[in-house]
Design a protein around this nucleic acid. Structure first.
Lengths: 222, 222
DNA sequence: TCAAAAGTGTTGGCATTACACCCATGA
DNA sequence: TCATGGGTGTAATGCCAACACTTTTGA
């Protein structure tokens, strides 16, 4: 707080964003390759300074928009990292956010970074700063929330099959689930609404579902 | 991160600490009364600027030590609040921590604040800044963690009875628990070690227990 | 006709809940 | 002796995990 009236020099404030999606059956993270400074060429999560009049979450959304073009994402604050030596350049306190989208947006070239790419979280490159810790915490948070909230909704399009939903759970938790139990449980929660359409494809058609609500909810899912 | 090479002006960084304990059967919070500035006379959680070379958690511990003398507390990061107008004086991003102690330390007079006091959380005075939100989040976190971690340990002395432990749960959750079920569950977890001593008092003596480990653990308690 | 995903019920075990009585003590 | 908290067991219920076969489709 600003109760200390004298003007202390304090740390700078930044945000970093862990953007995750499921791509080709793999949970994947969006990384950027630094372009300048002593860490040039290293991979990290995108992030940057918070502007003086900007709320923290706005800063995170702005970073996402600038690097990926995404505007409508699930976003929540993850943790704040502030070790004095986490950034070799200067003291930066970083508020980490974690974001989920149903599909990976196309990569775009931006001025800020040398490159950007999606990596499966099971095979992330070495990360700079303390972004390994951020990555670990994001995964932990996602796995935990998967089982007691409706957060998985953020990883699926508007209409999806129960098979799709189950695949999201299996991918993130890293284990197979029993289809009958899964369907019974999820349908029993009453959070899903069957659509009148079906998905037709290479196999037997599957009924499509949508979420009754896309607001975050607490519900014992598994 | 420090990737933006130009020198942006950014927010200042502070910590605020929600210190909780159970006193006379009431969950209570430690508050200070501001002494200076436009918010003089208002109550808030203690906090202050993070020093330039100081880790965030160290800053929180330092605040606690300065205001209460406490050195050995349970402390965890709660959330980071950074709305541009949360502090009318200047832009301050505050990393909120939440702390638990078994007993309320005696109040001491410090230079920083006009007063300090313990308030039952059911009857907090009006809080300044966005500290109402911080208070709400601290309570939510405590209630949630109570049921899936061993965090209650931090609110009890080294030796305690099962009745004491149950009282902690009942106080924080705000509902009565069945004694037989509670004892069966807790003893079944194997986290407690019966001591050879008993507590003698006004009634039938109760066996004292201690925690096998005082490290944080995840365990489905209730 | 084959491969692959969709869809469907039952059972056993385990955990949780609800519930009532006696005990040991200090006042 | 009384008030107060300590200590104990059982029965009913609900939840979760395990499990196999049939259906529908496009290729």
């Amino acid at each position: 707080m600003a109760r200390a009236t004298s003007r202390h020099e304090t740390a700078a404030v930044a945000v970093d964003v862990v953007l995750l999606t499921i791509e080709k059956g793999e949970l994947s993270a969006f990384l950027v390759c630094l372009k300048e400074g002593p860490l040039r060429g290293k991979w990290a999560f995108p992030g940057g300074r918070v502007r003086l009049d900007e709320p923290l979450e706005d800063a995170a959304r702005r970073e996402l928009r600038e690097q990926t073009g995404l505007a409508d994402v699930y976003l929540e604050q993850l943790y704040t990292f502030g070790d004095p030596d986490r950034d070799p350049t200067s003291r930066v306190v970083s508020v980490a956010y974690f974001a989920l989208v149903p599909t990976a947006p196309a990569l775009r070239r931006t001025a800020r970074y040398a490159a950007a790419a999606w990596f499966p979280v099971r095979a992330l490159p070495a990360l700079t700063y303390d972004h390994d810790r951020i990555a670990a915490m994001a995964l932990e948070r996602l796995r935990a929330k998967l089982s007691y909230t409706n957060i998985a909704w953020s990883l699926l399009p508007r209409a999806f099959t129960l098979g799709d939903l189950q695949a999201v759970y299996e991918t993130i938790l890293g284990r197979r689930l029993d289809r009958r139990n899964f369907r019974r449980k999820l349908l029993g929660l009453g959070l899903l609404r069957p659509l009148s359409r079906e998905r037709r494809g290479a196999h037997r058609p599957a009924t499509l579902y949508a979420f009754r609500s896309r607001r975050p909810l607490i519900a014992e899912v598994l």
